[in-house]
Simulated assay, not measured.
Amino acid sequence: MRCLHILNKAPGEPRSEACLADLTSGDALLLIENAVVAIADNAVGWPTDIETYVLTEDLEARGLKDFAVENGWACVNYPEFVTLTTESEKVVCW
C-alpha cells in the first residue's frame, strides 16, 4: 500500500477530519484509541477506495468489538498493526 494513515482522534476532532480529507486511492486507514468509536458514527463519510482497519484491543476496551465484527470491519491485533506499518511505503500518524 502507498500510505498507512494511523488515526487516534474521535470523529469531530480537527485531525480526524483532516485525515479523512487527505486519504487517496491506494492508501489504508487504521483506527486506534478513540478513533475506533467512529465505526459507530453514521455521519462519517468513509472513502470507498481505501482499506480501513480497526485495532481489536481498542475496540474491546470501548465495548465495540462485537459491533465491528457484525458490521464487517477489518479488525487487526498488534502484530498485524506492525505488519501494516512494515508493508507501507509511508506512515502518517494523526
Rank of each mutant, 00 (worst) to 15 (best):
R2T: 14
C3I: 10
L4P: 06
I6D: 05
I6F: 02
N8L: 05
N8M: 02
N8W: 02
K9I: 03
K9D: 12
P11Q: 06
P11K: 01
P11S: 14
P11C: 12
E13Y: 12
P14K: 14
R15L: 15
R15E: 14
R15S: 13
C19N: 08
L20H: 04
D22G: 12
D22Y: 07
D22S: 15
D22I: 00
L23T: 04
S25L: 06
S25E: 15
G26T: 08
G26F: 05
D27I: 04
L30W: 13
L31H: 02
I32R: 06
N34S: 15
N34L: 10
N34I: 05
V36Y: 05
V36R: 03
I39W: 03
A40D: 08
A40Q: 12
A40W: 00
A40K: 12
D41C: 02
N42I: 10
N42W: 00
V44S: 04
D49E: 14
I50W: 10
E51I: 04
T52F: 01
D58C: 09
D58T: 04
L59T: 04
E60S: 08
E60Q: 15
R62W: 07
R62V: 05
L64C: 07
L64M: 15
K65A: 13
D66V: 04
F67E: 08
A68Y: 07
V69C: 04
N71S: 09
G72K: 12
W73K: 03
A74I: 08
V76Y: 06
V76P: 03
V76T: 05
V76N: 02
Y78R: 13
P79I: 11
P79W: 10
F81A: 00
L84K: 11
T86N: 14
S88E: 10
V91C: 13
V91G: 09
V91P: 07
W94L: 01
